[in-house]
Design a protein around this nucleic acid. Structure first.
Lengths: 245, 245
DNA sequence: TAGGCGAACTTGTACGAACAAGCCAGAGCC
DNA sequence: GGCTCTGGCTTGTTCGTACAAGTTCGCCTA
């Protein structure tokens, strides 16, 4: 673990633990540098990490202040339903309802950087939280990873983890589009809600470390089961609003 | 404008302009440093900015790669409906439907760091995009800013901008919770949809530069009108999934 | 031909220094 | 008392250096 990560982790623990309540000031960079026997640049890397997490805010000339005290977790939680569920203390379940190879559609070709008509694997999964169905996942995998996906246990808990362990595949980058839609008849039947009732939809495309697209997915959460959360500031902010499509 | 911001802006333009298509490699830090006559550290700050925006990805040892080419805009866009609409080329409209001083509820007291029962200003606004109603905004302002809000034009386009110009108030930090809900009867009437139809809800709390809460709001978008978008990576990611509440 | 090895390249981490720019509180003035 | 102004503190920006760690690709060998 890098030095700046250690410092960041230390400060994060102090904030989460209440040593620095919301609104309080953090020690100055100079003082932290002294305390950890590190250069000021290293301390700055540490607090930049906390700022990116939305835990602290900073303005030139003034001491850094604590904005929040909730631990926010990383990419894995957003990408992997199972890992998120586990970290929250829930029991995640899942079932593959269908799995089918077919030629990709034009829009899938664009999103997955494939040739038109190239073969993809379409999988429909129902995910459960403590036994309750909360998520319908319609995922399309690029052909080159299809066979590894097909070898997975249909009731496999964490697809992400299994793919890492079996073929060393790492999901590294993702783009996510979030909006609300009405439940279709299949959604309604699977989630146990009425047709037309509100669902939170997350469409995503995930790529490897090299930037190669692996899968795109249309995930629909039962209303009330999941909320997305983000902290931002004038300087840093990755979440953007878009016109509907 | 700082040097690293100039470099970042330059690279961003090149990416958005197609000089570096998705999947392409960026020049090495050393080469960029040479090209811009800057130290490597400065170049690193620049590309870190692009990485935070999700435009490029990076791994130790390998060249940085381009992940996306869409310009993502900042905090202002997420916070201010009018500024976002303008940047997208839409005409934003808005009307204050009601404005009322009342004691704050217990939950509002917590979110706005107020004493229980302290006075707040509750405002109901309907927002339009090119004339079409797309957003119902239920905002609660802390008492200390209430009179400035009441002085605003009821049809004022950008509350954020007006408050900055009239009292110098800057919205600096925000926390946002995003989920889906069914339209209530008031929502349905105002947005022209059926009761129970899906809405995208964004609940937010905004604070000043000093970390002092200014307002909290419950915004509901008509389904299909707006999508939230985020890019993330294994290393940087502020958007998290939460259990429903 | 397939596989392994290594050298060159590239990004990550850390240090130290200097100056710029903004904030804040206390001193001093009206 | 209230206002202004200044000096010290704190964060922001930039430079330069050095080494660590990971990737890539060509070369050599079996």
């Amino acid at each position: 673990m890098a030095r700046y990560e250690r410092i960041a982790s230390d400060l994060r623990d102090a904030i989460v633990g209440g040593d620095y309540p919301i609104g309080a000031q953090l020690p100055s960079e100079a003082e932290l540098a002294l305390r950890y026997s590190a250069a000021r640049g290293t301390v700055r890397q540490a607090v930049a990490l906390l700022a990116a997490e939305g835990l602290v805010g900073s303005r030139q000339g003034a001491r850094r202040i604590v904005l929040g005290s909730e631990r926010s977790q990383s990419f894995a939680e957003l990408h992997s339903f199972a890992q998120w569920a586990r970290s929250m203390g829930y029991r995640a379940g899942g079932t593959v309802l269908s799995s089918l190879r077919r030629p990709c559609s034009p829009s899938e070709a664009v999103r997955l950087s494939l040739e038109p008509g190239e073969e993809v694997l379409a999988v429909l999964r129902l995910r459960r939280l403590d036994g309750e169905p909360v998520l319908v996942e319609r995922t399309v995998y690029a052909g080159w990873i299809a066979s590894a996906v097909e070898r997975l246990d249909p009731d496999c808990e964490s697809v992400t983890q299994e793919l890492y362990e079996s073929v060393g595949l790492v999901f590294a980058y993702g783009e996510h589009l979030i909006d609300a839609v009405a439940a279709g008849s299949e959604d309604a039947r699977l989630l146990g809600v009425r047709r037309g009732s509100p669902l939170l939809r997350q469409r995503r495309v995930t790529t490897t470390q090299e930037g190669r697209p692996v899968e795109c997915s249309d995930d629909r959460y039962r209303a009330g089961s999941v909320t997305f959360s983000i902290r931002n500031s004038t300087s840093a902010n990755p979440l953007v609003r878009r016109a509907g499509d």
